[in-house]
Each structure stands twice: as C-alpha cells, then as structure tokens.
C-alpha cells in the first residue's frame, strides 16, 4: 500500500466514470458516472495530501522541525504551524464534494424538467437546440 496504489485505484475509478459518462444514453447514469469521476479525483487528492511532502517542509526540514518543536513545547495548536499545509488536499476535497452536491441538485432538476416536457431521459433525444 503506497501512493502509486492509491493513484492507480483512483485512475481506474475515474476511467470507469469517464467511460460511463461518454457511452450511456440515460442521463441519470451519466450523472452517476460523473459522481464516480469526482470520487476518483477525491481519492487522488487525499492520497497526495497523505503521502507527498509539502514544499515548505521539503525545502527546509530543519526549520520545520524547529517550528514544530516550539509549538509542541509551548502548547500551541499544531494547525498553527507549517504542518497545516499537510491537509490542503483534504480541503480541496471538501470543496469538490460541495460542488458535486450543487451539481447533482441542479442536474437532477434539469432531468426532471426534461422528463416533464419531453417524456424521456435519453441524452441523444435532447436535441431541442440543434441547428
């Protein structure tokens, strides 16, 4: 279990989602496939945040060590130190989850409106604006 394992797992999930999103007729399946792609990206972001050394620590490990030792000695929260940059990937994942929730609410609203007007949920039938 290392970074490569997680990245390849996330790549597999992402590719399956891409395949479904491009090749399905039912618009709800397309939305589900897009959710799979979001999940793959989230796994990659969190794996990076767990395994890769942030630039500020890698550039100067001694200074980072001193800062952390001072925080531990003085009882300051570790989130105040350079170590808070460790979790930037997780914060990005939170934003992706937020946007995915907004996207699903809007997407399913569009699906319901389309079904009400045209009695279908087939993306290949959604050609009202074709020139």
């Amino acid at each position: 279990m290392n970074l490569e394992n997680f990245l390849i797992f996330s790549g597999i999930i992402f590719s399956i989602g891409l395949y479904g999103a491009l090749s399905k007729k039912n618009v709800i399946t397309v939305l589900m496939s897009i959710e799979l792609m979001f999940n793959g990206v989230n796994i990659a972001l969190i794996a990076f945040s767990r395994y890769v050394v942030p630039q500020r620590i890698a550039a100067d490990p001694v200074a980072a060590e001193a800062e952390v030792a001072r925080a531990l000695a003085e009882g300051t929260a570790l989130g105040e130190t350079v170590l808070s940059t460790l979790l930037t990937g997780q914060v990005f994942a939170i934003f992706i989850i937020t946007i995915a929730a907004a996207e699903v609410a809007l997407g399913l609203g569009i699906v319901i409106a389309m079904y009400r007007n045209r009695e279908t949920v087939d993306v290949t039938q959604a050609n009202l604006m074709r020139g």
């Binding site: 767990r50 952390v68 030792a69 570790l78 989130g79 130190t81 808070s84 460790l86 979790l87 914060v91």
Partner: peptide, 21 residues
C-alpha cells in the same frame, strides 16, 4: 518533533481542517 507533529495532525484532522477553512 516533526514526526510527532505530523502524527498529531493526521490523528486530529478535523481541528486542522477547521483552521484552514
């Protein structure tokens, strides 16, 4: 100290995420 700090951050992610956000 850095190892200790990193382990503490990953053992207590909610607090650090709240500060970052």
């Amino acid at each position: 100290a850095t190892e200790q700090g990193i382990k503490n951050v990953f053992g207590n992610t909610t607090q650090v995420i709240a500060r970052l956000l």
